[in-house]
Every structure is written in structure tokens, then in C-alpha cells.
Design a protein around this nucleic acid. Structure first.
Lengths: 150, 150
DNA sequence: TATAACTGATACTATATTGATATCAATTAA
DNA sequence: TTAATTGATATCAATATAGTATCAGTTATA
């Protein structure tokens, strides 16, 4: 069971980069090179992010993409929803025909509880939080200026 | 994002039935009819359950399937693993090439935390627990005898 | 002992999803 | 003018998902 598809993962990483370079347009080309994401695939996914109002773009030379919302306002739960659909049990099997039989209902009850737990966790992790983790890992936050290797 | 595939869902429901009728062989045909699971699809999935040592079978007339383990020893986490593979972040992307870049590492850290939460939840829900829930919902346990419709 | 009710084991098909590439038009900074 | 860019599609291959069909072998029982 794969929690994140490549597309969602790529989107998160692209947003991490846009969120780190605020107020400048970053080209798909540079994101692609920096994050090692297939160029055209990235282009498509950025268009989806635009459609969902998460980023804005500027066409032409020196154009590119920029965050539209605050990084803290973008939980990865939202990105999962955009690219993989809402976290749900079993293809609306339960929601469509509630209580078609008992077993289904009992299972549904437990699974929906888990669904909530999962969503709550994914909601807690925002792009902003990830950027701060990233900065901390690189020693950016306290002006120490130096980065450790791995 | 679909948590359970049909196959996993069917497997859970089949086991719920086997777990309720202990010590008798239940035919694929009757499970199929009772739980509304496509017959041949169910046959295949039962074979997988045998291979994973969760059920045993008896061939021939009056044959069928029976639980091999205690219902409480089968968490749905295990069924998810059998039919959908272990719950994991993003196709071993992180495990294969650790720290290819910083962003990946930070994301990985958060996601693996969530992975643990999810697994813990799926581990808590066993076939045995679901059966008890089911019995309670049907008023079996305390002899109240009456069932509410929905 | 014949037979109907079963499982075991495969092979097959259709459809959807995932991951990725290619192309061409329009826009814009320099 | 032109090179760098996004917008918008179309296409593709690989894999996963869901389901069907078939045939051989086993066993209770009439």
C-alpha cells in the first residue's frame, strides 16, 4: 500500500522549493533540475497546483511559478487530496450503500475511525513545517550559517 | 486515496464469516452468496489466504474453508500487507536512496512517523474484534435478542 | 461406484491508474 | 527578434485492479 504516489511526492518537493524562495518566480526547469523531477511531468503537476489555487505562474522569459498561499496553510493532506483523491476506505463502497449488510457496517465503523486518525496526521504536516524542519537540518535558523553533510 | 482495495475488503468479510462459524468448513459458494463477493474472485483470494497460513481448506463434497488462526491473531494490517503490500510512504523511494537530497529526508521523517501511526491503528483492529462488534450490533452477546434496522 | 459438490491451479480479459514523453501555440524579458 | 518560458493537449507504456473461464483432482454420499 503506497501512501504517496510519485506525483504527490513531486508536488510536495516542488512546493518545498517554491516555499523556500518566496516572491520570485521559479521556473519548472530549475525545479526539475534541482529536485530531479521529470520536466514535463512536473509541468503538468504545476498546472494542477495552479488550478487548485496553490501557486501562480508568469509566462515568458524569466517566468515561472510562485506560491500563492502561505506554506503553513498547505497541509500535505490537501496535496494528497488533489493528486490522489480524499483518503477513503474502500471506493465509497460503504458510503454508497450503507448497511447493505452488518459486516460491512462494522468494518466501516472501524475504518472510518482510522481514516480520521490518518487525516488528522496528514493535516498536521504542512509545507511550512517541512520547510522549517529542512532549515533546521541545514542549520539555517540560528545564523550559524554552516551546513552539515550527510 | 483508497485505503482498502476490493480484494482486501472481500478478504476481511470472508474471514469475518469463517471466524463466526468456527470448526466447520464453509464453502466458497456460500461465502460468495452470503457476502455478495464474485465467486471466482473469492476463490483466488482464499487460495492466497491459505498460502499465508490464515485459513485451511478441505477438498471435495462438504469441503470448504476454515480459519487456521485465532481471529484475534489476525489484524487487518496483516490482510492489507497480504493483498496490497506493506503500508509504505512512496514506493521505497526514500529507503532506496536515503538522503539523495535534504527535502526528501525531511519529508521521509514526517511520513514515516505517520506510517507508524497508521500501522498501529490497523494493528489494533483484528478479525476477532470486528466479530465481537458485529455480535454486539446484532444483540448476540447479552441475549437482548433484538436488532435495529438502518 | 457413479456423481454432484467441492477445491487447486491457471490462463485470460477489460479497465483504470500511474508515470512519463512529445508537440505546438502563446507570452515576455532582454 | 529571439530565447526562455508557460498553457494546453495528445499520446504512450507499464502496472494494478477487478473479474471471468476452464479443467483437473478430491471426497461425501446416494
Amino acid at each position: 500500500m503506497k501512501v504517496l504516489t510519485k506525483k504527490t511526492d513531486y508536488a510536495i518537493r516542488a512546493l518545498l522549493m517554491l516555499g523556500s524562495k518566496r516572491d520570485v518566480y521559479v521556473s519548472a526547469k530549475s525545479i526539475s533540475a534541482d529536485q530531479d523531477i521529470p520536466y514535463q511531468f512536473l509541468r503538468g503537476l504545476l498546472q494542477e497546483l495552479i488550478r487548485h489555487d496553490l501557486v501562480v505562474s508568469k509566462e515568458g522569459a524569466q517566468g515561472g511559478f510562485m506560491m500563492k498561499k502561505e506554506p503553513d496553510e498547505i497541509p500535505i493532506a490537501q496535496l494528497i487530496e488533489v493528486f490522489q483523491g480524499k483518503v477513503q476506505v474502500s471506493e465509497c463502497m460503504f458510503r454508497k450503500q450503507i448497511c447493505a449488510n452488518r459486516a460491512r457496517c462494522v468494518l466501516r465503523h472501524e475504518i472510518m475511525r482510522i481514516e480520521e486518525v490518518v487525516n488528522r496526521e496528514f493535516d498536521k504536516v504542512t509545507i511550512g513545517k517541512l520547510i522549517r524542519d529542512l532549515d533546521a537540518a541545514n542549520g539555517v535558523t540560528h545564523g550559524s550559517g554552516e551546513k552539515g553533510g550527510s
